[in-house]
Amino acid sequence: MSLTEQQIERYSRQIILKEVGGPGQEKLLASKVLIVGAGGLGSPAALYLAAAGVGTLGIIDYDNVDLTNLQRQVIHNTSDVGREKVASAAEKIKAINPDVTVQTYRERAAAANIREIIKKHDFVLDGTDNFPSKFLINDVCYFEKVPFSHAGILRFDGQMITVLPGQTACYRCVFDKPPPAGLVPSCSQAGVLGPLAGVIGCLQATEVLKYLLGVGELLTDRLLIFDGLGLQFREVKVTRNPDCRLCGQEPSITELADEEQAACDLKASQ
């Protein structure tokens, strides 16, 4: 595969980078990344990954665009309210970069369907808004050995970690299971500042590109915590837990199951 004149021009600023070059760009164009959730985190991530020329982007989301989404889910416009999120997102991605093949999945991520989708991708970006989905993605990625970027945002805070399944600490190594319902408020209850989604979503996109290019230090075995009010980044060292029920020495989770907990934003996921 050889870059076209237009591609050389379009991607010139990153081809110039020593760490990218022609081979790096070709790798990106040949890569497939799944974005789970076309919401706050998925929006900026999808836009930047499309612009960077990641060849195939999968988008999974069952929801329609709601007026309350627009404050932070920047891939959707006012005129998209009521449309399927995946259709709205696919349209924007194509507009930015026709090089990108978009595959849309208008489905809820569930144990029954997600494994088949994830296994077709090189990397998964978790942009979901609820704990059961996050645990599900973690588990599927472990079974399919697909690396992923986990992230969550609430109010002014965000956190994220990158997981190379079987090699670095997984989500369950750190958090064994979802918190009891009602303990952690959802975005619709507690609120969230829009740019938080942009900050963390862009950091996730950075991790994706680094992984695909094979450059830099991934955010593995480190939980990054962003305090938007104090504007501080903090890191918590984490290690693989030998007692992890998923990836530990005596795993008890051996097949997929949907964790039970209310979704974060009931209104948006009705």
């Binding site: 050389i8 110039i16 022609g22």
Partner: peptide, 14 residues
């Protein structure tokens, strides 16, 4: 500039 460098770099990579 900088397209000339980009192209030269791609050529050098080959």
């Amino acid at each position: 500039c900088p397209l000339n460098f980009v192209k030269a770099k791609l050529a050098l990579e080959k």
